[in-house]
């Protein structure tokens, strides 16, 4: 049955996401280790590499904080079972919490009670996009709390322009220091509005690392922000070094004439995500990970 296939795929995506870093993230961290000149920083990067190797070989969550469970879903307008989909994500999250396992991370803000199964009001959080076609594409995006705590949004005076944006990003990275588990990835959302800029910032983190923004000006800004933020010397875990930021992804929306919103989403080095595409006949393709028999 298609609903079982979807549920099993979501469980699988959560397991893959928390136990196995995507290839592009692994390569980027290894390259950073090769280039790092600071001895303490090299030790930190070495521990990171050893850790994700161990996690992958033993299918163990690489970080104990398996995050708030977030999904990005692109559903085709002709994909069947549209109505039951929201429930599937909740059921799959509960199952994954038990069998992977995931740390229960859904806490009631008023009572402090932990639901115990990673579900609750609005959680798992589902980001929907309706596209044309009959496929369903799902990205599991478990988001760690330490890096999330450093996210920032600022409504800049439009007169400050791109220079103001660069300064805000550098300031945010310095302010965050070692707290978001650097080396980090930065998603930057510009324009739209306060909420839209942060939405874009987080979604930008889904882009594969080797693909710069398709507009040359934006790609140039990404590169420049990467250089500037690495000049800080914060280093892995804030202990000093050359490697503070591993990648910068910028997205933008048109802005109101009076506003220049900038949202910054911090993602720790454990940039966990896993995607799959499900066809309406039940065929599943895993997009970010090699899955045997997948």
């Amino acid at each position: 049955m298609l609903d079982d296939i979807i549920e099993d795929t979501v469980v699988n995506l959560l397991r893959l996401a928390v136990t196995e870093l995507p290839r592009d993230v692994v390569q980027t961290i290894r390259a950073a280790f090769e280039q790092e000149s600071n001895e303490v920083a090299r030790d930190q990067l070495n521990a990171i590499i050893k850790n994700f190797q161990m996690a992958e070989s033993t299918s163990t969550p690489l970080c104990q904080d398996t995050g708030t469970i977030i999904f990005y879903i692109e559903v085709g307008d002709k994909f069947p079972l549209f109505k039951i989909l929201p429930k599937v994500f909740s059921t799959a999250t509960k199952r994954a919490t038990k069998i992977v396992p995931l740390r229960p991370n859904a806490v009631h803000p008023f009572t402090g009670r932990n639901s115990g199964d990673n579900t609750g009001r609005y959680i798992p959080y589902l980001n929907w996009e309706i596209v044309s076609g009959d496929t369903l594409q799902i990205t599991a995006f478990p988001k760690g709390g330490g890096s999330e705590n450093m996210c920032a949004v600022k409504m800049l005076n439009p007169g400050l322009g791109i220079k103001g944006i660069k300064r805000f990003v550098v300031d945010a990275v310095i302010e965050a220091g070692g707290k978001p588990c650097p080396p980090v990835f930065l998603g930057i959302g510009i324009g739209g509005g306060a909420d839209i800029s942060l939405k874009l910032a987080k979604k930008a983190l889904l882009r594969p690392l080797d693909i710069p923004h398709k507009e040359a000006d934006v790609a140039k800004l990404e590169k420049e922000l990467l250089t500037l933020t690495n000049m800080t010397g914060i280093g892995p875990m804030g202990l000093g070094g050359d490697t503070t930021v591993l990648g910068v992804f910028v997205e933008y929306a048109h802005r109101h004439p009076a506003s220049l919103p900038v949202g910054i989403a911090f993602q720790c080095w454990a940039a966990r995500k896993a995607s799959a595409r499900i066809l309406s006949d039940g065929h599943v393709d895993f997009l970010t990970h090699n899955v045997k028999g997948g």
Binding site: Q44, A47, I48, N51, T58, C63
Partner: peptide, 29 residues
């Protein structure tokens, strides 16, 4: 991870303790 402030630094000095960083995210290890 991420370090601590002046109060902890003073306490380490006074009572004989250290703060050590363990690599953030290296949970499996």
């Amino acid at each position: 991870k991420g370090g601590m402030g002046l109060r902890t630094t003073e306490a380490c000095k006074r009572f004989g303790a250290v703060y050590c960083a363990f690599t953030g995210g290296a949970g499996a290890q």
